[in-house]
């Protein structure tokens, strides 16, 4: 996941922690491929004697045993956004199926209910990406039967890979008029390919998440719409649940944060407080 995403989570966590009067230590593994680093960091935090832990997993399977070790030491663990496996007191994540569904509704409308789409489904073996893509394809099937998914890629999980993949698609499927992208980073690659092929305006791209890059692309019309999760709110909820667990208060086992669909036209009226960290915030 992109760095700006986790910065917004960190903002929500720190701001809410300040209100609740708890101290936060953050550790950044540095990417989804650094599971071993994350395991060490969780061990270090256990050594340090933290009272509770909020974990966004690099890999849900790989950190399961260290999460269980923390739970065995009576450290409550809350899974945030990218939820790890193992014993958790609470899971906080966005409504992924709805994010996919909103993309389907917006693309369906923009394509007038017919045509061919390609699906950039996001990194494989990530539950959030599975749920989001399923929300998209299910909604297409039920509401827009005239739209056909002609190709799917789960390997193109970053901007560069998406660029090369979509370049190929535009040649193989000249009639393609819509592309689903699991994240804004992946979607940016699709936009790059469309612009390079001089097809801007002919192919609609929908996306999820809202980085500064996505904001630019939405304003310029390169993204038809973006499904946005309340990232800061997830950080706040994760702290609230963790602190409740530490203070032996009731904890919600599952918290699903709401989603909105942004377009060029409704952009101005939206409150970005729960969505992203204020400009200039550094964790």
């Amino acid at each position: 996941m992109s760095e700006s995403f986790w910065i917004s989570i960190a903002y929500g966590v720190q701001d809410e922690a300040k209100k609740l009067g708890v101290k936060v230590v953050t550790a950044n593994a540095g990417g989804d491929d650094k599971a071993n680093q994350q395991i060490s960091q969780i061990q270090d935090l256990m050594q340090r004697g933290v009272k509770g832990m909020i974990v966004g997993a690099t890999n849900a399977d790989a950190i399961k045993s260290v999460v269980d070790q923390a739970a065995a030491q009576n450290i409550p663990v809350v899974g945030a956004s990218s939820v790890p496996k193992g014993k958790l007191v609470s899971q906080v994540f966005t409504d992924n199926p709805t994010m996919g569904q909103m993309q389907a509704e917006c693309l369906g409308k923009a394509m007038n209910g017919k045509g061919e789409v390609g699906v950039l489904g996001g990194p494989p073996a990530q539950t959030w990406a599975d749920a989001r893509a399923k929300g998209f394809t299910d909604t297409l099937k039920s509401k827009f039967p005239g739209i056909k998914v002609v190709t799917t890629s789960r390997l193109a999980d970053n901007r560069n890979a998406a660029l090369t993949t979509v370049e190929g698609w535009l040649q193989r499927f000249p009639a393609m008029t819509g592309i689903y992208s699991a994240t804004d980073d992946i979607g940016s690659g699709a936009v790059d390919a469309i612009q390079a092929a001089h097809k801007a305006g002919q192919v609609n791209v929908s996306s999820s998440n809202f980085s500064p890059a996505a904001e630019q692309l939405l304003k310029s019309g390169a993204f038809t719409c973006v499904s946005v999760q309340e990232i800061v709110e997830q950080g706040r909820q994760a702290v609230t649940q963790a602190v409740n667990a530490i203070r032996k208060k009731p904890v919600e086992a599952t918290v699903v944060t709401p989603v909105i669909s942004l377009t060029k036209s409704n952009f101005a009226g939206v409150d970005f407080g729960p969505i992203r960290a204020p400009e200039g915030y550094k964790p």
Binding site: D32, D33, N36, N59, D61
Partner: peptide
């Protein structure tokens, strides 16, 4: 040792 820690084989590990 990596498998011992992760309980899984990670194709992106070791970069």
């Amino acid at each position: 040792v990596l498998v011992g820690r992760a309980g899984a084989g990670l194709p992106t590990e070791g970069q």
